[in-house]
Design a protein around this nucleic acid. Structure first.
Lengths: 211, 211, 211, 211
DNA sequence: CATGAATGAGTTTTCATTCAT
DNA sequence: GATGAATGAAAACTCATTCAT
């Protein structure tokens, strides 16, 4: 008695395709400009469609940009979730995260997170909308850190929230972005050195001589 | 026989006062909103003056906001310069820097640097205008790090640029801001823990057992 | 086998029509007011459209008004060019010019040139933009005058530049505008009398008894 | 019982002096800019007084500029009135007028009439306010012309209004201004040639052979 | 569905004029 | 009287959003 699951009508497939094209164009613009400097006009022009058509896919400028942001977040979240259930030691799991993020900066597709985090407007909405997501992300990391402490990998005398935020600082670092874009260092080097600094700093002092 | 030092005429003092009020209102708004969302109208309303009056003090919106930013930069720069000439070991000097910045976040007057760094427009002008300043800051830090390496304090096998940028990441960390504003940790704790993490990570491995 | 000459798409025709309406409204306003007193708001209101719509047709106030001016210039220039290649004697050719200009004042569409020449701002742009055009116009007239002198029609002892500028004074005369608008004289009478005055004055004295 | 006629109190003399200084500064600005581009601020600055002080002498911007205009008009009117009662032949009297105006262009003090005639706003007020003056001027010239016709100097078959306006065209010619400012011709040459053209054109044909 | 012309609220900026000191 | 800080109305221009075709 329920709808037959015809995978996706042609119409619908085309629609999704166009949606993707719009997001892609939006992304390109956002790699050059601010949220506020991005104009619907320009996005439409880059896709090669009319301004009005954008509104068939996204009800407002905000939605368009948030969709992009969420898309990228989803990818990161997915990685994180995989890492979360991985059975590697805490340090290795966090290192994997650093790697994902820094390597992602190599490809322009992800840089724009920085661009978008600038707009207070967006940040507010994102927070409201993905409150849960962020919480999840944050508590997943907290869990990894606590795992590490429990396993004797990390220094249990350090404050977990500060360890968490230190890690986040490095993860979302604006200065590193420049370093990577100037091609002064490769992402691989960056991961390696930052890991060394962070994990040496965070490691259980009792383990250190062995390390 | 020289001019009596009448510090400032009444007029001039009033002028400075009003200027300060305007900057303060701007700051308040900027703690809630973006550069782009801040309107001259609103600033004027908060000060309780007419829009036109703003322009007696700042020739453009840009200038108003830059004045605020530069004011704060000056304070930081001053501290940095004092630290630069200090004779303390590298680690201590960097720790002092962390302390200055994190403690400054306690007072709302300085938080807004984050708000402003968002605006591409401003960042561009700031860069142009304070190109030298930024270079100086950056090379001063580089020197401290190299001093530390030379003195055997820091691990000479780590890349200096990455050490620099790691430090900058922690220094200008957006996540820490939240941590502090939520009053989850005190700035003092933050300095202490972040120092531990960073400097343990960066310290010369040969020195570690002693540490 | 070639494209059918669909002269202009419907859209395009409507666009041109609206553009024309805007120019017409602008013109009306300019017959009452200065360039500086003309506001985009008012033009829009007269056309019965929104302010923003104006900007779909003209990128700035300047452009709107210049478009109007250039439209009229084009008409005049075209006439002048036809007159230039005409094989009539110099006097006749200049007379034709006077006729064109004075007759054009009958129709309101052309009067506004006077209104616009007032604005320093516009004059400057016009000069820059149509430098060549003005030079051409001026040297074309010079040539006619020199032709006239060579042919013995005009008094060769008079200074050509002054003859030129005297002619231009009469051509672009503000006082005549009033005379015509008050309907004190008909354009035809004006052409006839002004011609008489100018050409008697300019004619080769040796020819005079015969004239 | 009536006020003793103390010629002018010191106060009053100073006041007049300052007024003159303001007018002079206004004039200087108007030689460079439009009425609309002239700002009270700038005038005040050039005089070296405060903006507010201007308003002790002139109730509005309009008044300031009109005062200037009227001052210059008065001078011209005065000359005209002298010429009017002069017993010279019509031609000579008109020639004297041309001379006054063209020679006056040599000195910057008078050029600005052109600048001011641009502003519709002013023109309107001037007309209202000096309606009589203009009428007088115009009918004085008409009288001279009619005198000339009566005396057989001028061609009586030409329309007096057109003769009048032709003369006014030459008198207030914008093109001539350029010619003079470019120093292509001297005012004296200009008077001579323009006179020749106008008066030959206007002269009674019967007189011509003798001329 | 797609279009893109039209909208109009919102923003910065200017400047004549006023008025408390 | 003089000052010049303050005012606020007015103007140009932008752009997300709507909607008739």
């Amino acid at each position: 008695m329920h709808e037959p699951v015809r995978p996706l009508s042609l119409k619908e497939r085309q629609r999704q395709q166009r949606r993707a094209l719009i997001l892609q164009a939006t992304e390109e613009v956002l790699l050059e400009k601010d949220y506020y400097e991005l104009s619907m006009e320009e996005v439409a022009a880059r896709v090669g469609i009319a301004k009005g058509t954008l509104y068939l896919h996204f009800s407002r400028k905000e939605e368009l940009v948030l969709a992009l942001l969420e898309e990228q977040l989803k990818i990161i979240i997915k990685s994180v979730q995989e890492i979360l259930v991985a059975s590697e030691p805490a340090r290795v799991r966090l290192e994997m995260l650093l790697a994902i993020v820094f390597l992602s900066l190599k490809d322009r597709r992800k840089r724009l997170i920085y661009a978008l985090f600038g707009a207070v407007e967006l940040r507010t909405i994102l927070k409201e909308r993905h409150h849960t997501l962020f919480k999840q992300f944050s508590s997943a990391l907290t869990k990894i850190i606590d795992d590490g402490k429990a396993a004797g990998e990390f220094d249990a005398s350090l404050s977990t929230p500060i360890m968490l935020h230190t890690f986040l600082s490095l993860l979302g670092s604006y200065p590193f972005k420049h370093l990577l874009l100037n091609e002064t260092v490769t992402p691989e080097e960056l991961v390696q050195h930052v890991s060394t600094i962070y994990f040496r700093g965070v490691v259980n002092p009792l383990l250190r001589p062995i390390q």
